[in-house]
Amino acid sequence: MDLPEISDLIVQFDPQTGQRLPVVQAEVVERFLSLGSKQAARVVAGIPSKNGLLLEDAVDAMLLRSHIEMQRLSEEFAHGSRVREVLLDLLAAFRVSGIPSPYRVVDLGCGTGFVLRWIAAHGGLGDDVELIGADFNTTLIDAANRFARLEQLKVRFTAANAFALPEAATILVSTGVLHHFAASSLAAFFAEHGRVGTLAFAHWDFQPSPLVPFGSWLFHVSRFREPLARHDGIRSALRAYTAQTLLQAARDSQAEFSLGVYNPLLGQLPIKRVFHAVMGVRPNLMPAFASASGQRFSRWHAWS
């Protein structure tokens, strides 16, 4: 976390109880100034506070606006349909392998839950599939549940820490979350997958590349209005992990998965994708997954 995002510092939770902790405005401003991030310091200094503590309502409103703006990124990159395609292949593999249903798909760090709401709205996964979004930010979870109700979507959202999952999950997915974790805790994150009986996982995040600083700046400046969303979006892309780091962390976790990376290039073009994904499937399910994905399987690389 050498380059923290604003959203990492303006909300703090007790990792044990999940209780929200008060945040001292001056400390966060000072931290950003000491890191040379004047823009972030300005944004935090502008948040209303009382007795030196950031006002939770103001922080939540800002976070919510930013997450709704961020949804645009997923919409424009058709991320819902990308995740759904992988889930369909995995579920098909489970069914032919005789894995008993129901299957539970959990989206970790779901924010306002775009991915699962998109999948619930477009359907097709089967009635034996339960969709659950988990995030440790209760404000975002409340909003995600409210948004799901607005469109009568069959998905639920619950407050949970990705490092201490309270429920079992058949498939774990996430989007734009891995870069929030310190490199030293990535292995613990993957180890958690082994603990809750997960059969497969797929985590999408920004892919580092030399073009990232400029591309990410361009995208966020042209698309986003909210200063927090602009700042954090640009910073997320800068702190993203390479596929090698993610694969190594997954291996270090000792959880038994065959590991792969989603095609880092755009088709045959020498252009790096904005998002890459690291995926794990229980070794005994790999043949079924390969056959269920058909041609799409060739998009996954570096299986080990």
């Binding site: 424009e76 058709a78 361009l218 042209s222 904005v274």
Partner: peptide
């Protein structure tokens, strides 16, 4: 193609808005 859509957003529509 989702990829063609993504490229046209990143390379053209974004910069052109600016």
């Amino acid at each position: 193609s989702r990829d063609v859509r993504s490229i046209s957003i990143v390379l053209i529509l974004g910069p052109f808005t600016l």
